[in-house]
Computed example of a mutant assay.
Amino acid sequence: MSHDDLMIRPAYATDGPPLIALDRAGWSWLSEVTPQRAEDAVMFNEQCPAEDFLVAELAGRVVGYIRQVPATPLASNKHVRQIRGLQVSTDVRGRGVGQALVEAACLAARAQDARRISLRVLGHNVPARQLYERCGFRVEGVLPEEFLLDGVYVDDILMGRRLDG
Rank of each mutant, 00 (worst) to 15 (best):
H3A: 14
L6C: 14
I8G: 05
A11G: 04
A11K: 03
Y12P: 00
Y12Q: 13
T14S: 15
T14I: 09
D15F: 00
D15W: 00
G16Q: 12
P17K: 10
P17E: 08
P18H: 06
L19W: 04
L19M: 15
A25D: 13
G26Q: 08
W29Q: 01
L30R: 14
S31P: 01
E32Y: 08
T34H: 13
P35M: 05
Q36Y: 00
R37M: 15
R37H: 15
A41V: 07
F44M: 05
N45V: 11
N45F: 13
E46R: 13
Q47R: 12
C48N: 15
V55A: 02
A56S: 12
A56K: 07
E57I: 09
E57K: 05
L58Q: 13
L58H: 14
G60F: 10
V63W: 11
G64A: 08
G64D: 06
G64K: 02
Y65I: 00
I66N: 00
R67I: 01
Q68M: 08
Q68E: 03
V69H: 13
A71M: 09
A71I: 00
T72S: 15
T72E: 10
P73C: 09
A75P: 10
K78F: 11
G85T: 03
L86T: 02
V88I: 13
T90R: 13
D91Q: 08
R93N: 12
R93A: 14
R93E: 14
G94M: 05
G96E: 11
G96R: 12
Q99T: 15
A100H: 11
A100L: 12
L101T: 01
V102H: 07
V102E: 06
C106G: 03
C106N: 03
L107E: 09
A108P: 01
A108Y: 02
R110D: 03
R110Q: 14
R110N: 03
A111F: 05
Q112V: 00
Q112M: 05
D113P: 00
A114R: 01
I117L: 12
I117F: 02
R120T: 15
R120Y: 15
L122M: 14
H124Q: 15
H124M: 10
N125D: 11
N125Q: 08
V126R: 09
P127F: 04
P127D: 08
A128G: 10
R129G: 04
R129C: 05
R129D: 03
L131G: 01
C135P: 06
C135G: 09
G136K: 01
F137C: 06
R138A: 14
R138N: 06
V139K: 11
E140K: 00
E140F: 00
E140I: 01
G141Q: 07
V142T: 15
L143N: 12
E145M: 04
E146P: 00
F147G: 03
F147I: 04
F147V: 05
L148T: 05
L148M: 06
L149W: 00
L149S: 04
D150M: 01
G151L: 02
G151I: 01
V152F: 02
V152D: 08
V154D: 01
V154N: 02
D156K: 12
G160R: 06
G160T: 06
R162T: 10
L163E: 05
L163Y: 03
D164H: 12
D164C: 12
G165C: 04
